[in-house]
C-alpha cells in the first residue's frame, strides 16, 4: 500500500512536469525521455527534480513515446522554448544526431543521459555498464575463487549485454588463464527472458552432470531462472550474480540463493545529471566538470567527456543499504527468511 501512494505521488509530480512551466530567472534544464512508460525513468526524474529544486532551477520534460520522429520534434520544441541545458535519453542513438547538432549549434550543452550518444561534444552521464559486469564477477570470485563457472549472458542483440560481458571477462579471464576457473557452459538469453535462462541452465546442468560451482547471470531476471533450475537439482545456494536490485532478487540474497546484485539507484544518476547540467550552464568547460572522465567504450570508439557512476554491489552483508534508501521494504526483503537471517532482517 505504501508503495502505491509513493508511486501516485511520483506520477503526479511527473504530470506537473509535463505542463508548460513559465520561464523563470534561474536555470532551465530540459529532459527528453525516450519512453517515460518504463518504470525506472520516474525514479530518475525524482532524483533530477529534487536536485534542481534545491538549486532553484526549473525542469521541463518531453516524452518521445518510443518514436524517433517524436523525439526530434520534442527537442526542436525544447530548443525553441529556450532552455539552458538539454538532457536526452536517446530512443535511437544514431537517429538523434541531427537534433543534437541543432542544439549544439544554438550553443546549448547536451547531456546524453544513461544511453550513450556518440558525439565528441555531447556529455555522457551514466551508470558504468562495464562496472556492472565487474561487480558481478568480483562478487562471485570473492566467495568462489576457483571452480567451474557457467555464464548466462543477456540478450545477444542488446549492446548493454555486451558491455556487461566485457566487465565480467575483465575479471574472469585472468583467472581462467591461470587455470583457477573453468567455464563449463555459456549461453545468451534472448530478450533477457527468465524462462529461456531457466531452460538453458537446466540443459547445461544436464550436459555437465550438475558439476557447477558458480553461475554468472547478467541480470536479476535471468538469475531467477538460474536459481529455479539449480533448485530443481538440489544445487540452490551456489554463488549466482545479477543486476538491477529487483525485489525478488534482493529477497533471494536475503534467503541465500543469490550472491550479489549490481544495484543502480536511479535517483543518484538524476542528481548527478542535475549537478553536471548546472556546471555546464555556468560555463564550466566540459573537460573541467567534476569527476569527468574520457569515455571511449562505445561501438565507434570515439572519445567523449563523461561522468560515470559506479553501481553498488549489494550482497548479504549490506542489504541494509537498499532498505535505508527506501528501495525495498524490510517486509518484502525478508519474506520467507527463516534460519540464518542476514543482519538486515534481524
Amino acid at each position: 500500500m505504501k508503495r502505491r501512494t509513493l508511486m501516485g505521488a511520483v506520477a503526479s509530480i511527473a504530470m506537473l512536469g509535463a505542463l508548460p512551466v513559465a520561464a523563470q530567472d534561474g536555470l532551465t534544464v530540459a529532459m527528453s525521455w525516450a519512453n517515460y512508460q518504463e518504470e525506472r525513468w520516474k525514479i530518475d526524474e525524482s532524483g533530477l527534480r529534487e536536485a534542481l529544486d534545491e538549486m532553484g532551477a526549473t525542469l521541463v520534460t518531453a516524452d518521445a513515446q518510443s518514436s524517433n520522429s517524436q523525439q526530434a520534434a520534442d527537442i526542436e520544441g525544447l530548443i525553441a522554448r529556450g532552455v539552458d541545458v538539454l538532457a536526452i535519453v536517446a530512443w535511437d542513438s544514431e537517429a538523434i544526431l541531427p537534433s543534437v547538432q541543432k542544439a549544439l549549434a544554438e550553443g546549448i550543452p547536451v547531456i546524453a543521459y544513461e544511453r550513450q550518444i556518440e558525439h565528441p561534444d555531447v556529455f555522457y552521464v551514466a551508470f558504468n555498464p562495464i562496472e556492472v559486469g565487474r561487480i558481478q564477477a568480483r562478487g562471485l570470485v570473492e566467495v568462489q575463487p576457483e571452480g567451474k563457472y557457467v555464464l548466462i549472458k543477456g540478450s545477444p542483440t542488446d549492446q548493454y549485454a555486451h558491455y556487461v560481458l566485457t566487465g565480467q571477462k575483465e575479471i574472469i579471464d585472468p583467472l581462467v588463464a591461470e587455470g583457477k576457473i573453468e567455464i563449463v557452459g555459456e549461453q545468451w538469453t534472448e530478450g533477457w527472458v527468465p524462462d529461456v535462462a531457466r531452460k538453458n541452465m537446466e540443459n547445461i546442468l544436464t550436459a555437465v552432470s550438475d558439476d557447477v560451482d558458480a553461475v554468472l547471470a547478467s541480470n536479476d531476471g535471468t538469475a531467477g531462472g538460474v536459481v529455479a533450475a539449480l533448485a530443481s537439482v538440489g544445487l540452490e545456494g551456489i554463488p549466482v550474480s545479477g543486476q538491477d536490485g529487483d525485489i525478488a532478487a534482493l529477497n533471494r540474497i536475503a534467503r541465500g540463493s543469490q550472491t550479489v546484485t549490481a544495484w543502480k539507484d536511479a535517483r543518484d544518476l538524476g542528481r548527478l545529471a542535475a549537478r553536471v547540467a548546472a556546471e555546464l550552464a555556468d560555463g564550466t568547460a566540459p573537460a573541467e566538470v567534476t569527476d569527468r572522465v574520457l569515455w571511449d567504450q562505445g561501438p565507434k570508439g570515439e572519445a567523449q567527456n563523461a561522468v560515470v557512476l559506479a553501481p553498488v554491489a549489494i550482497t548479504r552483508d549490506n542489504l541494509q543499504v537498499v532498505v535505508d534508501a527506501g528501495w525495498i521494504s524490510r517486509e518484502d526483503l525478508c519474506a520467507g527468511v527463516t534460519e540464518d537471517a542476514p543482519d538486515a532482517c534481524k
Partner: peptide, 13 residues
C-alpha cells in the same frame, strides 16, 4: 511456478 516469480516479460516471443 517454474520461475517462482511473476515477471512482466514472461512469455515474450
Amino acid at each position: 511456478a517454474r520461475l517462482n516469480a511473476g515477471t512482466s516479460s514472461t512469455g515474450e516471443l
